[in-house]
């Protein structure tokens, strides 16, 4: 299995993603610099990860400039052909700016950068990214962002809910999608969504930072295990 981790100027979670893919997926991970025009010399990868960080210093809006990097044209073609794309934190912001996912991520309601552990609930355990989890399983994962407040118009939100595309929702310790459990003000406590075809997932929390006990949690492993299972099924 080959996993391409795209590095933008200002990405800072690229190694975490590289390592998670290597350790959990036993994948051949490699970096792709944002100026590149293809996703790997050996042909299309099995998975593309857009990592966290502050691409282009978050100038203008988070993800707004990265979205026009040359490699994004390849990522969009890869996604259109059904390839699995995982956008984490800044990667989620880039996917929204690129129009691969609906809505936008704005300044946290608290105006504070939030770097802490949160709970999120698996709202749809039948996706390529979540099949290793139980339905409504509550995960402990870290967040680290200042602009993770998910917004979309009512019609988009209704559609996301109806189609099971709200994949993760912030919850409190009791597993309820309450205001206390919401770290950034996201509408409907949304932490992660996927596209209509189910092959592009974006989420603000960092599953790649929760893959071994040393990091405080192993709850993020399931995302990578699900991807492995999904890819094994394809083959």
């Amino acid at each position: 299995m080959r996993v391409a981790v795209v590095t933008f100027p200002g990405s800072n979670c690229d190694y975490d993603c590289y390592k998670a893919a290597q350790d959990v997926l036993q994948a051949d991970s490699y970096y792709v610099w944002h100026r590149e025009h293809d996703l790997g010399a050996a042909g299309a990868p099995d998975l593309v990860i857009l990592p966290g960080g502050f691409s282009y210093g978050d100038y203008l809006r988070a993800g707004a400039i990265a979205r026009f990097s040359p490699i994004m044209r390849e990522v969009m073609d890869f996604a259109a052909a059904g390839g699995l794309v995982l956008g984490i934190c800044n990667g989620f912001q880039v996917l929204c700016e690129a129009g691969l996912l609906p809505g936008a991520l704005v300044r946290n309601a608290s105006l504070q950068f939030r770097g802490e552990g949160v709970y999120m609930r698996v709202e749809n355990a039948t996706t390529a990214f979540t099949s290793a989890y139980a339905p409504r399983q509550v995960l402990r994962v870290p967040i680290a962002h200042g602009e993770g407040n998910y917004v979309a118009d009512e019609a988009t939100l209704a559609r996301l809910e109806d189609e099971g595309r709200v994949v993760f929702r912030y919850v409190d310790a009791a597993g309820e999608a309450s205001a206390e459990g919401n770290p950034n003000g996201s509408m409907r406590n949304i932490a992660g969504i996927m596209n209509e075809q189910g092959n592009v997932l974006g989420l603000m929390p960092h599953p790649e930072r929760a893959i071994e006990q040393l990091l405080g949690s192993t709850d993020g492993r399931g995302v990578f295990e699900s991807i492995a299972a999904s890819l094994a099924g394809v083959r």
Partner: peptide
């Protein structure tokens, strides 16, 4: 295209 995000 770039300067504003019509969603927000």
């Amino acid at each position: 295209k770039l300067l504003a995000n019509p969603v927000i």
